[in-house]
Amino acid sequence: MPVVSMTVNGKSASADVEARTLLVQFIREQLGLTGTHVGCDTSQCGACVVHVDGRAVKSCTMLAAQADGADIVTIEGLAKNGELHPVQAAFREHHGLQCGFCTPGMIMTAVDMIRRKPDLDEETVREELEGNICRCTGYHNIVKAILAASREMR
């Protein structure tokens, strides 16, 4: 079994895992960080999005072994010193969630898109959310929250 080591939310994590272990299983089951969700498990819904070396990826479609040596950030790693990340705060402020299941992936995707595209407009946000599905269909407020956060972070 491969030994995988990575940094998760600033802390080093290492374990012997079966080669077939997905990154999301490693995060949830090995590290107990259950904020990252498994929705569809078929790379469609984006509930499992985390950052690997600064880029948003679907952790249900990556082996833990592929992330060996990588720097991972999950939803638990966003808030600093008890202060919500501006994107988290904007989702709360603008009611960017209903049932909340898709929220961790939506927020991780939003943080990544704001980093890549500081001058977001509504059309771009909707395009960039192509890989994240909200089954409550609460997209309107999600888009509003992301636009507000991107203005805040400029």
Binding site: S43, G46, V49, V52, R55, A56, V57, K58, T61, M62, T109, D112, M113, E128, E130, G131, N132
Partner: peptide, 9 residues
Amino acid sequence: IGDPAVRHM
């Protein structure tokens, strides 16, 4: 191709 997360991998 795909979506942003897919394009990152």
